[in-house]
Design a protein around this nucleic acid. Structure first.
Lengths: 197, 197
DNA sequence: CCGAACATACCGACTGGTTAGTCTGGCGCT
DNA sequence: AGCGCCAGACTAACCAGTCGGTATGTTCGG
């Protein structure tokens, strides 16, 4: 058997990605050396450059993982068979819980976009835009059917809510007084109250 | 006369700070070399290290400037003689306008905190906390007097709103469809509607 | 009113250290 | 006997900060 799972049981590429995620979140992308990553994963540079093309690729993988996960979840909630009000609420609360469950991913996501190569940056932006559009469409549906106020442009509403998601990794602490679900409920309440006609 | 204002009219320290601010916002702190900064300011390293103790100091100056400005403005609005509802609205809208007027500062502020030395980081956090407390006190006053709903903890409300401020530098474009004041009005509306009992 | 001593503002070559990525080679499986 | 998987030494580039040096004011005794 090749040594793909040397030492611990999980395969090397995943160990590398996990180590990179943690270190990027703790110290930032630029402050984390490739050497640190391979040491944390218990391998050497040879292994890293066997599986990934560059340090940049590693970061890109983190983005791809987050984007895929969030888009899947949003689609599921948005396509559900329920009144708009409930679909928005569920989607808005879910993204909060998911973000808190992966706080490392979140802090990397919002702090390190500009360290991606221009090409990968564009790709991530495009994916992110798809996500934004889907959410906006939901809000607009509510506005058209009269459940939500039309006073604020849907775009702005989406940016308003995702600002607070973005901000979570700055202030949320797992040992704080509120559980992820409680935070999610409060933030979803705020959004829905702001949308009330 | 010493050459403090060689070439262009503004003094060297301010030219350095301005160049650093722009470059930090464009490329990030770690990606910006001291050499780039001094070239953009039209001086050399000697000048920079004459006025600033380190590259880190330069970043700290940016933070100090932003914090001082925002705290002053918040205090002014919060201490005004008007109903809580109006004071909150004015303060919430003003921070949006001020942030948009200094978008570079804003992107640096939220992306580069963790690149500050531990000591300076603590200092900035402490200042930021004062700001947060002041704003929270305003919200709580409104909740006590029954103008705002008590359903959401004031702390969370503050983080919710400042998440969107934080996020502004990600999506706002000066040549977009909305003026800073329009964005500010919309965001303040969203906040006040979310607080409506 | 003058000039020596001092102070301020800056220049730019240099240093010691770090970094991403490469490359050669070898181990173990099929 | 070949190939996927990986080790680890190596390289070329870069970077923050230092330091001796110079040019331009300012102060103050005589």
């Amino acid at each position: 058997m090749p040594r793909t799972t040397d030492g611990d049981g999980t395969p090397v590429p995943q160990r590398l990605l996990a180590a990179a995620t943690r270190l990027f979140a703790e110290q930032g992308y630029d402050r984390t050396s490739v050497q640190e990553i391979v040491e944390a994963a218990g391998v050497t540079k040879g292994a890293l450059y066997h599986y990934f093309g560059s340090k940049d690729d590693l970061l890109h993988e983190v983005y791809a993982r987050v984007l895929r996960l969030q888009q899947e979840r949003l689609d599921a909630f948005a396509d559900a068979d329920a009144p708009v009000e409930k679909r928005v609420r569920d989607a808005a609360a879910d993204v909060v819980v998911t973000t808190i469950d992966n706080l490392d991913d979140a802090s990397i996501f919002f702090r390190s976009m500009h360290q991606l190569s221009p090409e990968k940056n564009r790709q991530v932006r495009a994916e992110r835009r798809r996500y934004h559009e889907r959410f906006r469409a939901l809000i607009e549906e509510g506005q058209r059917t009269g459940v939500f106020t039309k006073e604020t442009p849907a775009d702005l509403v989406v940016d308003y809510h995702f600002g607070s998601i973005h901000h979570l990794s700055t202030w949320y602490r797992p040992n704080g007084p509120l559980s992820p679900q409680e935070v999610a409920d409060h933030l979803a309440d705020l959004l829905l109250r702001a949308l009330r006609p």
